[in-house]
Amino acid sequence: MRDFILKRIAAVILPFVCVYGFYVIFHGHISPGGSFAGGIIVGLSYIAFSTIYGIEKGRAKIPDKVLTWTESFGTLWYGLMGLVGIFKGVPFLANKLAGVDLGLPGALFSGGIIFYIGLGVGIRVASTMITIFFTLMEDQS
């Protein structure tokens, strides 16, 4: 697609879409949505960029290596957050038991490690969506 209007509009909108995705990720524990939905929005913003500006350009922005890293370490981050509980001498994935400050209900930084777990999951989901997109596109070309 080499449409001028589309490119301009995308240039304006896509950063906001991306930021909105992160907003959804970060507010997963206090509002509907969450890391999965947010991650998909982030991923879609990038997919939209690639479709509008061309695959090659999209690829250049995020090399395969980076994708692989974010994919793997998004999940690993989840695991590390889980290990916090174990290092505190309480079960895996423990939150309050591990002595994490839960904060006030409704505030952004509440819910202890959920916030951080959400970040990892969101990144993983976003990078996976992008990988899937690229894989499918690659197969077609």
Binding site: G34, F36, I132, T135, L136, D139
Partner: peptide, 24 residues
């Protein structure tokens, strides 16, 4: 069900890639 949807998305993606492979 959110988890279920995640699973279903991955199944769909995987199946699509297989279909593309077969189509090629």
């Amino acid at each position: 069900m959110l988890t279920g949807i995640v699973v279903s998305v991955s199944v769909t993606a995987f199946a699509l890639s297989l279909i593309i492979r077969l189509y090629k």
